[in-house]
Design a protein around this nucleic acid. Structure first.
Length: 108
DNA sequence: TTTATGGCTGTCA
DNA sequence: ATGACAGCCATAA
């Protein structure tokens, strides 16, 4: 079962609430595979057509958006997050301490 | 099988 | 804050 590995990752990403973000490492840990942060990126990169997984809510540990193959994608992802209420600064990064999704902690 | 690469992360200068 | 380095592990060739 090779697909299940990604399935767990997708399941976690899907649970990220609107206006909240999660880091690759966080998704990997929640998916039960701590340390597979990079593989999370691959999983998202290998997203099947038609899946409306909120991949844009996944950012890197520095609170920034990791560039994909396409240069313009960063801008698109940021725009989507801003639409959901996530605030970015001029440098293009957000405050993880504030927008990071907390599965255990209740929303404040 | 081995190598190279990658939507990462954490530490150190 | 930025840049360099070292871990980490799956996928592709």
């Amino acid at each position: 079962m090779v697909k299940d590995a990604y399935h767990d990752i997708y399941a976690v990403v899907r649970r990220i609430p609107r206006g909240r973000v999660a880091t690759y490492g966080q998704v990997a840990t929640l998916a039960g595979t701590p340390g597979h942060a990079r593989q999370v990126g691959y999983a998202l990169n290998a997203l099947p057509d038609g899946s409306r997984l909120p991949w844009h809510r996944v950012v890197n540990a520095r609170g920034g958006i990791s560039a994909r193959a396409e240069p313009g994608y960063v801008r698109v992802q940021q725009a989507m997050l801003e639409t959901e209420g996530v605030e970015f600064d001029a440098a293009g990064h957000l405050d993880l301490a504030r927008f990071r999704w907390r599965p255990h902690h209740h929303s404040t």
